[in-house]
Each structure stands twice: as structure tokens, then as C-alpha cells.
Computed example of a mutant assay.
Amino acid sequence: MTTMRPDAPHPLDPEAAVALFTAHAIPGAEHTDRATATHTRLISTADGPVRVDITPDDAGDA
């Protein structure tokens, strides 16, 4: 697993991010588990589909 923290001008509100993921998920292609605050989707790569899990936090820049 790789953890990435994009630069952001301010801390992220995890609840708002999960709500956004849930509202805009593509049925059958993406899933948001609100209990664990994890959004999962498949992305296409040259080697085939890769599962990506996104779990927002409010850590700011680490």
C-alpha cells in the first residue's frame, strides 16, 4: 500500500470528503464505506485495472 498526502492550503474535513465521495460515486464502479470513511474505485492502467482506496484525514500536511 502507498500513502499519499497531497499538498492542501488547509486541513481536509474527512466527513465532508466522504459525503462528497458518496454523493458522486458511480454505481457498480465505486463504493464508499461510510463506517470506515474509505472510498474504493478501480482505475485503468496499462497493466489492467488497479484498486484504489481513499481514506481522507484531517492531518494537514505531514
Rank of each mutant, 00 (worst) to 15 (best):
G60N: 10
P9K: 13
A29I: 01
H39Y: 12
D61Q: 14
A23E: 11
G48L: 06
P49N: 04
H31L: 11
T38L: 00
L20I: 14
A16N: 04
P6G: 05
A17T: 09
V18M: 02
E15G: 13
T36A: 15
R41N: 10
P11S: 05
T55Q: 04
D33I: 10
G28I: 08
I26L: 04
A62I: 06
T2G: 09
T32W: 03
L20K: 13
L12Q: 12
A25P: 07
E15T: 09
R41I: 08
I26G: 02
M1H: 10
P9M: 09
A17I: 05
R41G: 15
D7M: 08
T2R: 15
A46H: 08
A19H: 08
R51K: 06
P11Y: 01
P14A: 08
G28Y: 11
R41E: 15
V18W: 04
T36K: 11
P6K: 00
A8T: 08
R34W: 01
V52T: 09
L42R: 04
G28F: 14
M4P: 02
A59M: 03
I26R: 11
T55K: 11
F21P: 04
R41F: 11
D53S: 13
D7S: 05
H10N: 08
R34I: 07
M4K: 06
A25T: 00
H39T: 03
I43W: 04
A25M: 07
T2C: 14
E30H: 00
R34D: 09
E30F: 02
E15V: 04
E30M: 15
P6L: 11
P56D: 10
A19Y: 06
P56Q: 09
A37D: 14
P49G: 07
P11A: 06
A19M: 05
I43E: 12
H39G: 12
D13M: 02
R51N: 03
I26H: 07
T32C: 14
P11L: 01
I43D: 13
P56Y: 08
A59I: 01
T40Y: 03
A8H: 12
A29H: 04
V52D: 12
V52E: 03
A35P: 07
V18F: 03
A16C: 00
G60F: 00
L42C: 07
D7F: 13
G48K: 08
D53E: 12
R5M: 08
F21A: 08
F21D: 06
T2F: 15
V50G: 06
T2L: 15
V18I: 05
T3L: 00
T38M: 05
I54H: 02
T55N: 12
R41V: 07
A35D: 15
A37S: 15
T2H: 15
L42M: 07
P27E: 09
D57T: 09
F21C: 11
D47I: 03
T40Q: 12
T40I: 00
I26T: 06
S44A: 14
T3Q: 10
T36V: 07
P14V: 05
T55M: 06
T3W: 01
T22C: 02
P49V: 01
